[in-house]
Simulated scan of single mutants.
Amino acid sequence: MKMVLMSILCGCVLLMDAPADAEEPKVNCEKADTQMEMNYCAEQDFNAADADLNAQWKVTRKALADWDKKLDVDQRGAENALLKSQRAWIDYRDGECEAEGYSAHGGTMEPMLVMSCKAELSKVRTEELKQLADTIGQQ
């Protein structure tokens, strides 16, 4: 019983000594050497691609909503179709990238493969959404 209490106390002391908000690691992604650094950089690349995708999503959704407003009520549906396609695309992206990660399943390289895949597919989707908004905006 004493060992259990000591373990709990030691664990609490260790938690109290940990920094409250850990700093981001300082990694030069152009010179990432370790798998941990490469995983981190792949995650950062995906986060940036996802932010760009989300920004373009708002622009494209607004373009299609504005398009719908120009149509008779019974002909509207562009914005809903876009939402449906985006939901399907997210399922596709996540499934495709999970499958790609299986080539290193359980290994330290798996997160990098998944994040790199998500970043690349997100960049392609961002361009697709931009083209759609541009096309709708021109009509």
Rank of each mutant, 00 (worst) to 15 (best):
R76M: 13
L71H: 06
A81G: 12
A55E: 13
F46Q: 02
A81E: 15
Q44A: 06
F46H: 01
A81K: 15
E43D: 05
W89S: 07
L82W: 04
E43Y: 00
K58V: 08
K58H: 09
Q56A: 11
A81R: 11
A55D: 12
E79W: 04
L71E: 14
F46K: 01
Q44D: 05
D52R: 11
L53E: 00
E43P: 00
Q56I: 05
V59T: 15
A55T: 10
K58M: 07
V73K: 13
A49W: 03
A65C: 06
L64K: 02
R76F: 15
V59R: 10
A63V: 03
N54K: 11
R87Y: 05
L82E: 01
N80R: 15
K70L: 11
K70H: 09
A51Q: 05
A81Y: 13
R76S: 13
E43R: 04
D66W: 00
S85R: 08
A48C: 05
Q44S: 05
K70C: 09
A55I: 07
A65M: 12
Q75I: 04
R87H: 07
K70N: 11
R87G: 10
D66M: 00
W67V: 07
A55H: 08
L64N: 01
S85I: 09
N80V: 10
D45W: 02
R76Q: 15
V59A: 08
W67R: 14
D72N: 08
R61M: 07
N80D: 14
V73E: 14
V59P: 04
A78S: 13
A88N: 10
D74Y: 07
N47D: 08
Q86A: 04
A81W: 09
L83M: 11
D74Q: 09
K84P: 02
Q56W: 05
K70E: 15
D50H: 09
K62E: 10
A78W: 07
L82A: 04
K70T: 13
L64S: 04
K84V: 15
K62F: 01
K70Q: 14
N80M: 14
E79F: 02
D74R: 09
T60H: 01
R76A: 06
D52T: 03
E79C: 01
Q75C: 10
L82D: 01
G77L: 11
D72C: 05
Q86R: 08
A48P: 00
D68G: 04
T60K: 00
Q86T: 03
D45I: 00
D52W: 01
L82K: 03
E79M: 03
W89K: 05
Q56S: 09
A88L: 15
N80Q: 14
A65I: 06
G77I: 13
D72P: 03
A51S: 06
K62R: 10
A63T: 04
A63F: 03
F46E: 01
R76H: 10
E79S: 06
R61A: 08
A81V: 13
R61I: 02
V73Q: 11
F46G: 00
R87P: 02
Q44K: 12
W67Y: 15
L71G: 08
D68N: 08
G77C: 11
K69N: 11
L83Q: 06
L64D: 05
G77K: 08
Q75D: 15
R76P: 13
S85K: 11
D72T: 11
A78C: 13
A78N: 13
N80S: 14
F46A: 00
